[in-house]
Write a protein that binds this DNA or RNA. Structure first.
Ligand SMILES: [Mn+2]
Ligand SMILES: [Mn+2]
Ligand SMILES: [Zn+2]
Ligand SMILES: [Zn+2]
Lengths: 144, 144
DNA sequence: AACCAATTTATAACTATTCTAAACACCTAC
DNA sequence: GTAGGTGTTTAGAATAGTTATAAATTGGTT
């Protein structure tokens, strides 16, 4: 067993326990989807992820990509970002952060700083609890 | 001419100049859509607005509702709020404010306070200018 | 009236997402 | 090993919000 295999095994174990820790059963499809998605911090559409998984040589249906993304969102492994009526991104980085969206280029960029305020329960509508704070700063090219 | 008619005339004149000031030609359809939408501060889907206009006795096609909303958005008379992949709201209040969205009930509520930070150009991605700051606090019912 | 540009309209097209029901995978019991 | 069961995947259909198309209508101008 060389060091390359060691690293791969370790990375696979990380992905596996990421899913297992959330009570997600391991399957070939969920593993390859998670491998692709969690390889780095990125914002992908379902279709982009589908294409990347295909590119990696795996046979996974688009329905499974949607099912799995929905499952990951429910388990808190991934964050949905609704940009407009026909553009949903999935963010592999679930830590508290916000986004710039360039309406001209379609680029979605992380904002490092914590811009949105903290909420305490009594500031929320009665009988509700915080789910998530979605802050999107829409920008356009200055000289189009 | 009684005071009721005075008021109606005045209100119609307000709507007319709201549109004219943006270089929008006045038509029967644009007037009834604007009357309905700008009657109060509210968040409506295209379909809700379409139904309200029908209810008011006017014959306006859904295509015209979409065309007119798109025109109003372009002219800055109305603000689009993208809640999820199949829920776009149109906000008749374009002043700087943000929203609570209850994922259980579907309610979209204004937040009075100014929560999101101000931006100056050098804080934005290079070569871009601010368009709009969209802040949505998603909440769920505490005891579902 | 004839003309013209802008607008509206019905309808089709598009597309992201969800649904459906059958096939498949994997495990356990016998 | 075979049967049975549960969870998962799959192709394809369905759904629904939105946009595009192209013909009809409107309202103003000569
Ligand atoms: Mn908190
Ligand atoms: Mn859609
Ligand atoms: Zn991000
Ligand atoms: Zn609002």
């Amino acid at each position: 067993m060389n060091s390359k295999n060691d690293r791969q095994t370790t990375q696979q174990e990380r992905i596996d326990s990421l899913l297992s820790d959330q009570g997600i059963n391991l399957t070939r499809q969920r593993r390859v989807i998670a491998d692709t998605l969690f390889a780095r911090n990125q914002h992908l559409t379902a279709d982009q992820l589908f294409e990347m998984v295909k590119q990696a040589g795996a046979r996974v249906s688009k329905a499974t990509v949607y099912n799995t993304l929905g499952l990951f969102v429910k388990k808190g492994l991934v964050r949905e970002i609704f940009i407009d009526a026909n553009r949903t991104f999935y963010d592999s980085n679930t830590s508290h952060h916000h986004h710039f969206y360039n309406v001209d280029t379609g680029d979605l960029i992380d904002i490092k700083e914590r811009l949105a305020p903290h909420f305490v329960n009594h500031e929320l509508p009665a009988g509700t609890a915080m789910d998530v704070v979605d802050l999107v700063i829409r920008v356009r090219n200055s000289h189009p």
